[in-house]
Design a protein around this nucleic acid. Structure first.
Lengths: 182, 182
DNA sequence: TTTTTATGTTTAAAATACTAAACAATCCGC
DNA sequence: GCGGATTGTTTAGTATTTTAAACATAAAAA
């Protein structure tokens, strides 16, 4: 989905009942700048946009937050779960086709010593997991920790992350993410 | 707190293990641009910043949301999980405050014979779960099935549903739903 | 109507960001 | 050590944004 910066700003301004000049004065820019931005005739400098948004006020994060509000098989025997092989890690996905769905749940089995690779994973959404068996080293951004059975994690998926099995027994994890990442 | 755009970008890039040139190539800008941005010597055009962030990838909103996520707790010992008592069923939620979040994960322990009640549950969203231990009877709409360790379920939460522990051992389930239901 | 006031748009000049290439520093293999 | 590759930084030139002021239209007041 395309983000229409100009339209978003115009909508915001009108919701606040401000003219381009009023907003410009508050923001410390000229009305022409606001006009150009609203028509998408320029890609404003972040600094300029920030000044403008301070006139409402609203933060950059909220401004860019596009509001994603966001008969089928129900029961699955373990062997029915969709297998997604990825080297030494055996993923089993709950459910078949997740198109249109917003939740993905995986039953993961890590062979001893296996990991998700040195290049860190990163995607949209949130993910969480509970360790069922074994020891799993979880790295998120600059933070790292070893989790054991019963422990859990929860983070936003855009943060680079990596999983690694510790010790010489297999590791079992039940994880979920939203929206589905593959 | 002042938002340090340059530092934020540098940190992100380093977490991903990319050089300025590698990122520049992915993003379709020059390495000099990235250098200047990271030093806060320019206030990049929104369009340029977007191109750069697409190289990770990460959205503008998350980029500006910054420290929110980095201060958030990620790892949870089993005893740290938030307990949500509900009669004979012990829920432990992964994560503390889920406001603004779209994923909820629970570690559930059913005492022998316990269930979620005769009046069926129903709410918005989707939910899924994996049985870790014991036997669980799951009823969704008119369908009913007994699941054992390793088995799983997935359905849309608006369908009336009910869970019941079968046999005389406790049942352990890891479940997830989106959006959080309580 | 005529005038005043306010609106959004456009334009030439000034300010700023971006590129391409050179520069400096560091690391690695030989 | 040396040479080559890779890193982040800087610089001069080009491209883009921003300003200040003029323009055009519309609504309100006289």
């Amino acid at each position: 989905m395309e983000f229409d910066l100009g339209a978003r700003l115009r909508s915001l301004r009108e919701q606040h009942g401000l003219s381009q000049r009023e907003l410009a004065k508050r923001a410390g820019v000229t009305n022409g700048t606001i006009s150009m931005i609203e028509q998408n005739r320029t890609s404003p400098a972040v600094g300029s946009l920030k000044k403008v948004l301070d006139g409402f006020p609203i933060g950059l994060s909220e401004f860019f937050a596009s509001d994603f509000s966001s008969r089928q098989k129900i029961f699955y025997d373990h062997e029915e779960l969709t297998r997604i092989s990825d080297g030494k890690i055996a993923y089993r996905q709950v459910g078949r086709d997740l198109t249109g769905k917003s939740l993905q749940m995986l039953h993961e089995i890590y062979a001893p010593g296996s990991d998700t690779g040195r290049s860190m994973l990163s995607h949209q959404g949130e993910e969480a997991g509970v360790i069922v068996k074994g020891k799993l080293e979880v790295t998120v951004g600059t933070e790292r920790r070893i989790l054991k059975a019963g422990d859990a994690y929860y983070f936003e998926s855009h943060r680079p992350h990596r999983f690694r099995a510790i010790g010489n027994e297999e590791v079992v994890v039940v994880s979920a993410c939203t929206p589905p990442s593959f």
